[in-house]
C-alpha cells in the first residue's frame, strides 16, 4: 500500500471554490480528464447536503509494461461521490478507479473547508490517496506498480492545483472586478 497526501490553500471563499468545481474541466493543465457526467444527485431535506455521483473519463498514459501486464485500454473511468454541506461549509469528495480495479485500487479523499486563518476568503484543500494492488503477484512488481501510480498521482495533483487556480481566477476575478477591483 502506498499513500499520498497534501494540503494547501486557495485564495477564494469556500462558496467560490465550490462553484468553481463545476468549471474545473476542461482546463489546459488537466487534459487527462476528458469527460465528466453526473449520474445521480440529491438534496437531503433535513441537512441541506447535496450528494452527487459522477463518472469521469480519463486518458491514461500508463507505462507500456503496465498496459501489457493488465491489458488496460487508453480510456479509464473514475467514480466520484461528493457531499456539499452548506451549513457547516464542508465539502467531502471520494474518488475511486473503476477501470482495472480488479488489479489495483486508488481511493482519493478530498476535503474543502474555510481556512481557519481567513474563513471568509480562503479555502483549505486537503487530499489523501491510498494506492493498493489487489492481485497476488510478485511483491516487487506490485511495489513498482504502486509506486508508479503514487508518483503519477503526485504529478496529476500538482497539475490539478495549477489548473484549478487558473479556473478560479478566470471565474471570479472577472466577475468580482466591477465591484471589488482586481484581487
Amino acid at each position: 500500500m502506498h499513500f499520498f497526501s497534501q494540503s494547501f490553500h486557495y485564495d477564494h471563499s469556500w462558496a467560490h471554490v465550490n462553484v468553481g468545481l463545476g468549471f474545473k474541466y476542461p482546463n489546459p493543465y488537466c487534459t487527462h480528464v476528458t469527460t465528466v457526467d453526473v449520474l445521480d444527485r440529491s438534496i437531503d431535506p433535513n441537512t441541506g447536503i447535496i450528494r452527487t455521483e459522477k463518472v469521469l473519463g480519463c486518458k491514461q498514459k500508463a507505462p507500456i509494461w503496465i498496459v501489457k501486464i493488465l491489458g488496460g485500454s487508453e480510456d479509464a473511468f473514475v467514480r466520484e461521490v461528493s457531499f456539499v454541506d452548506p451549513k457547516t461549509q464542508r465539502t467531502s469528495i471520494h474518488s475511486e478507479n473503476l477501470s482495472l480495479s480488479q488489479y489495483i485500487t486508488c481511493i482519493e479523499r478530498i476535503h474543502y473547508t474555510p481556512a481557519p486563518s481567513n474563513m471568509a476568503e480562503r479555502t483549505l484543500f486537503s487530499q489523501t490517496a491510498e494506492i493498493q494492488t489487489r492481485m497476488a503477484i510478485w511483491r516487487s512488481v506490485a511495489d513498482k506498480m504502486e509506486s508508479w501510480m503514487t508518483e503519477r498521482f503526485g504529478q496529476n495533483a500538482e497539475l490539478g492545483r495549477e489548473g484549478f487556480e487558473g479556473v478560479l481566477r478566470n471565474l471570479w476575478d472577472r466577475k468580482d472586478s466591477p465591484t471589488m477591483g482586481s484581487s
Partner: peptide
C-alpha cells in the same frame, strides 16, 4: 459497459451519506 463496474463499486462503497467519506480515513 460501465454498469457492472459501477454496481461493484457501489456495492463495496455505497457512500450514501457524508459520514461514510469521513469514516474511511
Amino acid at each position: 459497459g460501465l454498469e457492472q463496474m459501477l454496481d461493484e463499486a457501489r456495492g463495496e462503497n455505497p457512500l450514501v451519506d457524508v459520514g461514510s467519506v469521513d469514516e474511511e480515513r
